[in-house]
Structure formats: C-alpha cells, structure tokens
Design a protein around this nucleic acid. Structure first.
Lengths: 185, 185
DNA sequence: CCTTAAGTGGACATCGTGTCCGGTTCGCCA
DNA sequence: TGGCGAACCGGACACGATGTCCACTTAAGG
C-alpha cells in the first residue's frame, strides 16, 4: 500500500513532468528540472522513476491502455470483426491520433532502443502479428517490425515538423501501406 | 588544402573510432576514448568532428557513396531500367547489406533525430520518391518516409539481435513491402 | 502516545561535454 | 636554407547532468 504523502508527491511529479515536457520538449528537461518544479528532492524522484523514460511511460500509460482496450474489445474496424487490412488501417489511424497528441512527450524520453523494451511495443507487435496471421501472410515475424517502424515518434515528428505533412496525409500513406501489404494478400 | 599532420591525425582518429565503435558499441564510446586511442588531444578531435555523429558519418561516407553511385548509374534492378517495384526491392536488399555491415557503427552515434539531418537520408528519400513517382503513386510525399522507416538502424538491430531474425528474412519482408505498395499500384 | 519502517530531500562524487589558449609545427617564400 | 605567418595541436578548465547515499522526517498501526 502507498502512503498518503507518497501518492501526493507522485501526482505532483507527473503533473510537473507533463507540463515541462510540453513546454520545453522532453529532451531538454532534466531530472533536476522535474524535481524542482514538482517541489520534491532528487532522491524522491529517483526512488520512483529511474529515468525520464519511466516518467514518459507512466504519462502515456492511460492513453495507451485505452487504445489497447479498444483493439481487444472495441467496435470494428478497430476491434475484432473487420477484415485484417481494414483493422490494420484503423490501428494506424488510431496510432496517428495518439502520436499527434503525445509524440512530443515520448520523443527523447526514449533513449536509444528503449522504445522496443517498453511493454506497449510488445502489445502493438502482438496485435499486428495477429492481423498478419489472420491474413495468412507467410513469415509474418520480420514484417511486423517493418510495419511498426513508421510509427516511431521520431519519424512522425520529422514528417509533421520538417516535411510539413498533416496527420491526414500520414494516415493516408499508412492506409495505403496496410492495403498494399494485406489487401493484395 | 590540408596540412600533412592534420591529415595524419584525421586518419588516426577515423581508424581508432572504427575500432572502438566495433569493440564497445558506439553509444559506449566517449569522445575522450577516441581522442586517447587516436593519440590526439580533445581539442584536435573537436576541431574536426563536433560530435560522435560526425565521425560516424565520415566513416559511413564511402560505403554510402558507393551505393548511391550504383543507384544512379549501376546495373538494373538497382540502377535505372527495371520496374519501380523491383528497383525498390533491390534498394532494400542493398540497404540491408549496408546495415548488416555497419549498423552497429551508426547506432547511438546518431543522437535523436540526427538520422534525418544527414545528407544520406536526403538521397535515399529522393531516390524512393522518384520510384514512387515513376509508379504513379498519388501523394508520394508521406509514403516516402514510411517506406524508409524500417531502415532505421535501431529497428534493424532490434530485429537482428532481440528477435533473432536473419538478414534474408528481413530482406524478404521488405521485398514483400515493396511489392505490396508498388506492385499492386 | 510511541514505535517502526517507509518516505524524503539535498549534498556529494563522478562522468562526459565542449571551449579556450599558450605552445608547436607546417608549408611557403625569399 | 632560414624565417615568418598561419594553421594546428593538446591538455586544462568550467559547466551541467546523472545517480547515489544517508541523516532526518513523517505517516500509520498497536
């Protein structure tokens, strides 16, 4: 069980981190910044969250859970019931929505390959893998990560900011990708 | 023009960096390590290469140039002459070869979004974009980066090391991707 | 109340980065 | 060959971020 002061501090840390990430961009926020903004000491911060990635994961957690729930038990085409190609396209569209809202938050918080080590990636991977299997794609193993690669927050932000693309254009490209790989079976 | 001692030092820096990157992995090599291994001072190192990424770029340069040359003027299907879908598949296969040899070198050397800022990415981008245009794909702009995303060294190393996939399996998946997107035009 | 264990916070040691400047070496030209 | 200016060299330095550690505080139950 969690002590009252601990719970209060955790809430303050998360709130402060969310604000700072949005303000200055995740890579430019130091652990010290967060601790100071939250009004807690460094030791307290490190006790809970060993690094920025852990904080980002905690912040994203609820949003990702919501999407995961819809994938498992929601309405088609996101949930079960629709053809694999349509479900993949719907998944892409939903992920673009998630990225549009929170990519800035994730970016930089994931140092190096931490993206793959996070539990959420495993979930997306299993989902897409199941769709490939349902479409009878041979050797889906390698294709899974290939199809997930465009959802890298860095890629998304590059397209949005540097290339000047809109979410709908990116979604369209991903839809085409889904149709090309699964539609033409 | 470049002075003789400067040229000698640059060669030693590149040689030492290549060795250290291969030995300990690029992210674990500090600028100080490289300077010491090369037998030069930190100032000398920073004069030429402002960060690790610059060294990695210099090391990759010749290999990338060779591939770029083959794309522009080599034999089909890599060079001009073959249908876009086949050229894209050939490009993927060649990039897998490049990654297989040098991904460890690039990884971690590219801090954050530096991958997109490097000149080579612009070249790959222009190449794939031209292939999409040749295949009369509507709105190729967003699709380009989507198709390039699986070539992220981090993705590749994740597939190779963590997922235990072989280069031929990854190439097969990318070939399927090329066929799906361009083949079914 | 009083005890106990978890929680807290800031000081500390360490490491990597990037800069700066006095001394050195090179390459050109007389 | 000898001298000169400029480019180059290298280590010392200051700074910033990280992660740890420990003495103190506070919450919760008996």
């Amino acid at each position: 069980m969690e002590r009252a002061d601990a719970a209060r501090n955790r809430a303050r840390i998360l709130e402060a981190a969310a604000r700072l990430f949005a303000e200055k961009g995740a890579p430019n926020v130091t652990m010290d910044d967060i601790a100071r903004a939250a009004g807690v000491g460094r030791g307290t911060l490190y006790r809970r969250y060993p690094d920025r990635a852990a904080i980002a994961v905690a912040l994203l957690d609820e949003h990702e859970r919501a999407l995961q729930e819809r994938l498992l038990r929601g309405e088609p085409p996101l949930g079960p019931g629709a053809p694999p190609a349509e479900r993949l396209a719907a998944f892409y569209a939903a992920m673009v929505g998630l990225l549009e809202d929170h990519a800035h938050l994730v970016l930089g918080a994931e140092t190096g390959r931490s993206r793959f080590e996070v539990g959420a990636y495993g979930f997306w991977r299993a989902h897409v893998r199941a769709l490939l299997a349902a479409a009878s794609v041979p050797e889906p193993e390698a294709l899974v990560d290939v199809l997930l690669a465009p959802l890298d927050p860095e890629v998304y932000l590059f397209q949005r900011r540097d290339r000047g693309l809109g979410p709908e254009q990116i979604t369209a490209a991903l839809t085409r990708l889904a149709a090309g790989v699964l539609g033409a079976g």
